[in-house]
C-alpha cells in the first residue's frame, strides 16, 4: 500500500491559489479542520469560493469564533455557497453590502449536490424547494404526478477535511457528530487534504471501521495543537 504525503498545514495549503473553489467540512465549526483553516488564512489566499454547510459562529461580543469564520472575517471569499449564515453576522454584512456573493442552498440539497459530484451522477431530483425561491432557474420534472427540482453536482478544486484518525494510506475514521459533511466532500474534489488528530501505521485500522477509503485522500496533516 502506498503511503500518502504527510505535511504541515502551511505546506499542504500552498497549492490553494487565488480563485480556487474549496469545500470545507464541518457544521458550525464542529468537524472543521482548524489547522488548515488557520494556515490558509495566514497564507492570505483570496477570491476563493467556499462550499461549506455554514459560515460557523462569529460573535465577537461573546468571544466566539469557530470553524471557517476567520476566513470570512478576513474577506478571503468572493463567493460562499452554504445552507446557513445566521450565526456569523459578518457573512450577512458582506452579503448585504455586496462585497461577497452568497448562495443559499437547502442543507440536504447541498449534501446531495456534493455527493452527486463525487459519485459520478449528472444530478438528482429532489422535492426540496419546490414552490420556493430555490426553484428559480431550475428545471422542474414531474415523476408520478409529483414535482421535483433537478439539482446539479457541485465540484471543488480542494476539500479540507477533519477526521479523528488516519492510517498512513489515508483511510479515515471520524469522531461523533464531527463527521457531518466530511466523508461526502472527500469524494468531490480534485485534491483532498485531511487533517487528523492521529496517524497510525497501515494495517492498524480495522477495515470494517473505515468510513472514507484511502483512495479519496491526497494529503494528510497532523493536527498537532489538537485544535477543536
Amino acid at each position: 500500500m502506498i503511503e500518502k504525503p504527510i505535511m504541515k498545514a502551511e505546506e499542504a495549503v500552498k497549492q490553494i491559489k487565488d480563485g480556487s473553489v474549496i469545500m470545507v467540512g464541518g457544521f458550525m465549526g464542529c468537524g472543521t479542520p482548524l489547522s488548515l483553516v488557520n494556515a490558509l488564512d495566514k497564507q492570505g489566499t483570496k477570491d476563493l469560493t467556499l462550499i461549506c454547510n455554514d459560515t460557523a459562529i462569529y460573535n465577537p461580543d461573546k468571544n466566539l469564533v469557530t470553524g471557517v469564520a476567520p476566513l470570512v472575517v478576513d474577506k478571503r471569499f468572493k463567493k460562499i455557497i452554504a445552507s446557513h449564515i445566521g450565526t456569523n453576522r459578518e457573512t450577512g454584512r458582506q452579503m448585504n453590502a455586496g462585497e461577497t456573493e452568497v448562495q443559499l442552498v437547502p442543507q440536504g440539497t447541498l449534501a446531495e449536490k456534493i455527493r452527486a459530484a463525487g459519485f459520478g451522477l449528472g444530478g438528482f431530483l429532489t422535492p426540496t424547494g419546490v414552490g420556493t425561491e430555490v426553484e428559480n432557474g431550475k428545471q422542474i420534472i414531474e415523476v408520478n404526478g409529483k414535482k421535483y427540482l433537478l439539482e446539479l453536482p457541485l465540484f471543488a478544486d480542494f476539500a479540507l477535511l477533519k477526521a479523528k484518525k488516519a492510517d498512513k494510506a489515508g483511510n479515515l475514521i471520524y469522531s461523533k457528530s464531527a463527521r457531518n459533511f466530511n466523508p461526502i466532500m472527500a469524494t468531490a474534489a480534485k485534491v483532498v487534504i485531511a487533517e487528523v488528530d492521529e496517524i497510525v501505521e497501515i494495517g492498524e485500522l480495522d477495515p470494517d471501521d473505515i468510513v472514507t477509503p484511502f483512495i479519496f485522500v491526497s494529503i494528510l496533516v497532523l493536527n498537532e495543537k489538537k485544535n477543536k
Partner: peptide, 21 residues
Amino acid sequence: NYKVPGKLIPGMGGAMDLTVG
C-alpha cells in the same frame, strides 16, 4: 421562516428538507 429580504437572511439550513420530508 428563513429570510426577511434586505434585513435578516440566516438561510434555510435544513428547514426546507424537513418540511417536505
